[in-house]
Design a binder for these strands. Structure first.
Lengths: 222, 222
DNA sequence: TAGATTGTTAATCGATTAACAATC
DNA sequence: TAGATTGTTAATCGATTAACAATC
């Protein structure tokens, strides 16, 4: 790619960003499988998208492939990792240690993929006492302080809907830069530069349900 | 909305569909809070989007509001529920009963929002013996048969990456129409009418990480 | 060389935003 | 009435798809 001054990484569409992250992780798997070279159509097949879509995504980060011969897996991974700064360890915490929260707290893949869970937080002290894990857990009122002290960048939220927004505010007060919210309500922040992603299990199921209806049977008349 | 023959529900963009499902659930919460009327800007504020976006979404389903007075919460919920057929009970199963799978299996909100978990499946018989729940659990080799017999429409996948695609194929062989995949790999189906949504925890964290970088510090030079 | 495959521009498609007439 | 707010069209913005020259 010929560098154009107006063209910065900030212009990369979020869907492209998501796919680039998937490619980054896929490259690690490919290396473990002993595969050293891939084409855009190989990657496309694995990710269920079109090959030109993949090429366009990679193209946002500049040239890395070889015309006629595809991509070297290691080079491609390094290329994406460098540009999107995915190589560095990220410090995170989990808030809300119910079933979902504890499942995330001890998910081994987090560590192997560069996410270090520094702490867990739970507002119920009774509940807190029943949790046995190698990761340190604290009552929620200590959250803002500990987040600041430990330099935690990302908060993973798994609290009830009613607590979600105030918990998010506390995390942001402690200095987190991003929140991945699994609580069943949309949270937001007006503060500049805070990244929030809302993932609601029920809503994901609802989307699947409606798409089943809409692609299957005839739609109801309006 | 004046009905146009070309305009079917199939044309609704997926992001709009997602927001409509959120509004549907939000209406239930509003009713519980005793709120009977909302404007598009009220809804927009709660969902963190623009008000005209909300109006446009609702507009896909036809008129339901009152010019100058907003929407009746109950009427709006019924309107969305009827058109997207969200009112009916949906039969689902969970495959892969590790920490995440069991957390989903017993998530109480599923039932209250219309999703009935009929069964859980796990390939390890040792693991299967340790699970104590009111929901019936089975070894995975029985999955295709039970899915067919019980008329299960949606499969929720929480298995390791290596097992994900073959497990999905078994679910589809049993007749599921949709799959919500939390396994850390993208799954797909060529079969017409099968809806698949892939949600990868690590990738969601990666998207947050990259967006933190891209909005925060200056981007690296390419 | 011939076949394969990237990088990149242009064209198309899709989604959001703006704007405002209608009207409660 | 005056202020508020919907429904809907048109305009803009964003993302995907098509196409192909370059070249390994």
């Amino acid at each position: 790619m010929v560098a154009t001054p107006e063209m910065t990484l900030k212009n990369i569409p979020t869907p492209s960003l998501s796919r680039l992250c998937l490619i980054y992780d896929l490259c690690e798997d490919l290396t473990l499988e002993g595969i050293e070279a891939v084409s855009s159509s190989d990657l496309a097949k694995r990710l269920g998208v079109a090959a030109h879509n993949i090429r366009k995504d990679i193209c946002y980060l500049g040239e890395v492939g070889t015309t006629g011969a595809g991509y070297n897996v290691t080079a491609l991974r390094n290329h994406i990792g460098t540009h999107l700064m995915l190589g560095q360890e990220r410090r995170a915490c989990v808030v809300g240690l119910g079933r979902l929260g504890t499942a995330i707290l001890e998910y081994p893949r987090l560590f192997t993929r560069g996410y270090k869970i520094i702490a867990g937080f739970e507002s119920s002290t009774n509940r807190l006492e029943t949790i046995h894990t190698s990761i340190k857990v604290y009552p929620s009122y200590e959250m803002t302080d500990i987040v600041r002290r430990e330099g935690i960048e990302i908060g993973i939220l798994a609290v009830p809907a009613t607590a979600a927004q105030s918990t998010a505010d506390d995390l942001i007060a402690g200095g987190v830069k991003g929140i991945l919210n699994f609580s069943p309500t949309v949270i937001s922040s007006d503060k500049y530069g805070i990244i929030i992603r809302n993932i609601d299990l029920i809503n994901e199921l609802r989307i699947v349900s409606t798409q089943i209806q809409l692609t299957g049977a005839q739609p109801v008349q309006g």
